[in-house]
């Protein structure tokens, strides 16, 4: 174990300063130190995506990012995506289209989908399937997840058009 490092993160809009060992993973800093338990640990090898967060505008698997690498970064987790009074379109869409069952993959799925739709507001089904391929689900068979993301895309685009 080596000396702890001073790390500053902006998580869901709040600045957090903490001391972490260089080997500490971002997912554990979020979950154990900051009590942000929306992102989950499913594999610790970057395969399942349950730990997905947005870091400086990119989707990352926080189980294979050191907290030290995230120093100075802006991080958004599922907790920063909507609030009980004002859910994100994707959060509603997942419920409406039955895009979840046990819920364990859902925070990572929705977090990833926010970024996917930011990068590609009008995706095809193939785009969604490819763009979500880093997030595994064992319950739904993806069909309703894809449906949820496509429905959210349509709704977000319509809202954007109406605003313009």
């Amino acid at each position: 174990m080596s000396k702890k490092m001073q790390i500053t993160l902006t998580v869901n809009g709040e600045t957090q300063e903490l001391l972490a060992e260089p080997r500490e993973l971002l997912i554990y800093v979020l979950r154990e130190r900051l009590n942000i338990t929306g992102p989950h640990v499913g594999c610790e090898t970057s395969h399942c995506g349950a730990c997905t967060v947005t870091m400086d505008g990119k989707s990352v698997k926080s189980c294979t990012v050191f907290a030290a690498q995230a120093n100075g970064a802006e991080i958004t987790t599922i907790e920063g995506i909507g609030s009980p009074d004002s859910l994100h379109v994707l959060q509603n869409a997942f419920r409406e289209h039955h895009g979840l069952q046990c819920g364990f993959c859902t925070p990572g799925m929705i977090t990833r989908a926010t970024k996917l739709l930011e990068d590609n507001p009008n995706p095809t089904e193939e785009d969604v399937r490819f763009g979500m391929a880093g997030n595994l689900c064992r319950c739904t068979g993806y069909q309703n997840i894809v449906k949820s993301v496509l429905a959210a895309a349509t709704e977000l685009s319509a809202a954007k058009e109406a605003a313009e």
Binding site: T37, H40, V41, R95, T106
Partner: peptide, 16 residues
Amino acid sequence: RVEDARFTQGKGNYVD
């Protein structure tokens, strides 16, 4: 589903 509100908001309560 009534379960979905907490799961979609990252408020599930799993053992870890």
